[in-house]
């Protein structure tokens, strides 16, 4: 497994390099530049030119690209073009918020989605099944940021049960968890819709397997057939799909963080885009790319953990 892991990590390097190059080009091809964005349209061309020079944007593109790669190799994510602050500090500050939100949303998704999926599978083609499928279809159709706005309106503005702003300091755990509820729900409920449909489908398939029929034939109570035999097998593909959920949630968290004015990688990235902060944007993308590569790797490794039949060669 170690050799496999190392090989996968090495294979990730060209992927990352390609991603970095694309990111580097895209952020610069986009119209506008950081100096104009910083000084506004009031500033004279001379002032804008002077700022571009100070930002190092007057250098040839290839020079900027090489110094970007050289800095990365040294583990230096650079400084924000706009504020001059080290990017790594800012990412370090917000990363826990994004990780926490993602994990919380996974928990919400699984805790709600799996039971509903099982029930709708067992009660296939009943009213419960139809209701569950309609709700999950609705969940698939609602963007997380829109659900977030609805939740804020209902629970923060009308009922005043939770704050509209989705974050508090880690030093205040009570307030922190309280503030996490709505963002986690807005992401997690949509994830629950996916999990529901996935669970229902998997459980339905397992219930028709020979070993389930055998268990029933030998007279086991339905409860034991279900929990002792069917569901244990059904959970294997679900567990392995958590990684995929995590990746989709990291993407989904971008707008959720924006709606809840919550610190996070996504909010950092949107801000960097608006300010044309090239170095910040590049570095966030690097972090996203690394996180996704790592999650993919962990997901592959998880197969072996949940299913001993899998071998890594």
């Amino acid at each position: 497994m170690l050799r496999y892991t190392v090989r996968r990590l090495l294979l990730a390097i060209p992927t990352l390099l390609a991603v970095l190059t694309i990111i580097f080009v895209i952020v610069r091809v986009a119209p506008g530049d950081p100096a104009t964005a910083a000084l506004g349209d009031y500033a004279s061309e001379e002032a804008v030119r002077a700022l571009r020079q100070r930002m190092g944007l007057d250098r040839p593109l290839w020079q900027q690209y090489l110094s970007f790669l050289a800095d990365l190799l040294r583990g230096d994510l650079g400084k924000s073009l706009i504020t001059g602050q080290p990017v790594v500090d800012q990412i370090r500050h917000v990363l826990p918020y994004t990780v926490e939100l993602t994990l919380a949303a996974i928990v919400v998704g699984l805790v709600i989605g799996i039971p509903i999926g099982i029930v709708t599978a067992i009660r296939r083609n009943t009213l419960v099944d139809y209701a569950g499928r309609v709700v999950s279809l609705a969940g698939l159709s609602v963007p997380a940021f829109y659900l977030g706005i609805l939740l804020i309106y209902l629970f923060a503005v009308r009922l005043r049960l939770f704050p509209a702003l989705g974050a508090a300091e880690f030093s205040k755990p009570g307030a922190h968890l309280h503030a996490l509820v709505l963002p986690a729900l807005s992401l997690g409920l949509i994830e629950a819709a996916y999990v529901t449909r996935m669970t229902r489908s998997v459980v339905l398939g397992v219930l028709h397997e020979d070993y389930v029929r055998t268990a029933r034939a030998k007279g086991l109570p339905e409860r034991i057939v279900l929990f002792g035999h069917a569901l244990r097998s059904a959970m294997i593909p679900l567990v392995s799909l958590i990684g995929l959920f995590a990746i989709s949630l990291i993407g989904g968290s971008v707008l959720t963080e924006e709606v809840f004015a919550r610190p996070g990688l996504g909010k950092l990235m949107i801000g960097a885009m608006k300010q044309k902060d090239y170095t910040m944007l590049q570095s966030i993308m690097v972090v996203y790319a690394i996180v996704i590569v790592v999650i993919n790797l962990l997901t592959d490794l998880l197969y072996g953990v949940v299913d001993p039949r899998v071998r890594y060669e």
């Binding site: 593909p237 799909l241 993407g251 996203y288």
Partner: peptide, 24 residues
Amino acid sequence: RRAVLRRMASIGLAASAFAPLLAA
């Protein structure tokens, strides 16, 4: 796993991974 991802994409799971681009 790649095939699973492909299948999942067909039901829209992977779509949210593009949210950053949508945000942009």
